[in-house]
Amino acid sequence: MNVRVMNAAVAKTVAPDKPAAAAPAHIAATGLAVDFPLEGRKQRVLNDINIAVPKGSFVSLIGPSGCGKSTLLKVMAGLVTPSEGTMTVAGLSPQEAVNARLIGLVFQEATLLPWKNAIENAAFLLMTADETIKKSEAFDRAAAMLKLVGLDGAEKKSPSQLSGGMRQRVAIARALALDPEVLLMDEPFGALDAITREEMSECLLDIWERTNKTIVLVTHSIDEAVFLSREVHVMGTGPARIIETLPITVPHPRTEESYSDPAFTAAENRLRSLLIESHKKGRR
């Protein structure tokens, strides 16, 4: 309750219970809860999640470790079944959305097949999802996506010849080759160094602007969340839930200069204090 009262004091904050925007939600959760079995008992890892992601938006989930942000992403991807409440993606259940090939996934590890080169990896999921697609068509699409992520010319390289950042670009191209409506990313740049991270953020922003996908990003990085998102959902532990939804008003197009924008700094400070607070609570 305290959180609710405190939230009301911040003018920019949207109450988490209400849909964030007037636009129809592309991804929506109501009263969502997830229990995992732990040593024979049920452990609640997500509680009363209400979230609405407008179509074509870029939304981040941020919070301390163990706050269930990855689990929430997995529910969206149909990999985890909710124990209570509902989750819809484009009006469908996540499992239906998977079958309709609406979902693209990117993880922290690029998880490329070491025996396939870049373009074969980029085409791999598309060819797995669609058995009827011609190899040439799949490869054309994969090549186009590799170009989009800035990897043209590296099509024939094997994963061991690519840097961490380049491998992650292939993973993004692989997800985009499916032409999904929704791109779900779980700390995609978590294993990269700071400069590569910023480079990849700009690349991702560029992809989002060009493809108009709905993107949900799970991240630990405040910078990354503010730079990329339209809206940041801050999650807290015990029980894991969304404690605040913060719209990011930094103007588009966002560039290197955006980092010093007053709106950027304000959002950054707000997120930092929220995270510090929820971190302290988590420790208690």
Partner: peptide, 10 residues
């Protein structure tokens, strides 16, 4: 995560 990826395309 590779298994998840495969499951995410059904």
């Amino acid at each position: 995560s590779f298994v998840s990826l495969m499951r995410s395309v059904g």
